[in-house]
Amino acid sequence: MGLLRYIENKGIELRSGSEITLSDGSTALLLCNPTKLECGVAEQGSERLVVVHTTDQSSQLQFNVERGGSLHVVELFLSNVTARSVICQQADSHCQITSIVVDSAAVDYQVDMNGEGAESLLRSIFLLSGQEQAKVGVRVNHNASHTFSDSLVKGVASGEARGEFDGLVYVADGVCQVDARQLSRNIVIGGKAHIATNPQLEIYADDVKCSHGATVGQLDGDAVLYMRQRGLSEAQARSLQLEGFVVDVLSLIGDGELYDALKQDLDNKLERL
């Protein structure tokens, strides 16, 4: 049962927000196909959101995380959607975004770190097959000192799919003690798939630690051979290897019914790659 069926079966009305219980007992707000939304996390408050896109449309989200607040977002793109999310973080706030793209979507994240001590963690994967085309953009603006960001975007494209990553770490003039990391890792399957990756740094301050990197590779033929020698079919070996490639990001979603439903979608997708 995929995610869509799960949501329908649960009777959760699409579009309106409703609470779901996660496996650890905590609750999260489920948003289905939001078109425009502004959402705040109060000082020292904590919010968990699961955002699911199942229809072809555009979406604009804004999250304001006040001082000491904590925001945890899992966003799933199962349709051809254009989405832009802006996250404004005040001092000592913490934000974790996990974003999964399995269809032709254009996804942009902008994280504004406006207060000292803010931390941002972003993890994204895109899995594309056939003729799908997707773009993931991540812009992190370090507008305050003592801020930390870590972004990792992993892409897999097969068939004639095209994927694109645009990353920018911006460090404003006059700030200090910034630690920013950005990494793009990609696997291209077959001769017709294509992934373009473009990680950039724009730094106007001196006392900063920034790292960025990008890799585009293919499935490891030696690993496939090794697994086949143990009895796995070629398809199993490839899909196990791809699963291994994205597991660190997937594991951030947590477990429970929602995750199981999503896992089904992802397994189906991995098999098609």
């Binding site: 490891d220 690993a223 697994m227 086949r228 020698q229 143990r230 079919s233 290897q241 490639f245 597991v247």
Partner: peptide
């Protein structure tokens, strides 16, 4: 893979690393 399933095992001179795939999961599938 069919030779392996028949019971032919090759111990590799240079065993391959497979990031993200646990030994337990790998062996279970195999």
């Amino acid at each position: 893979e069919d030779r392996a399933r028949m019971g032919l095992f090759l111990g590799f001179q240079y065993p391959v690393e497979i990031p993200g795939v646990t030994m337990a999961n790998f062996m279970k599938v195999a």
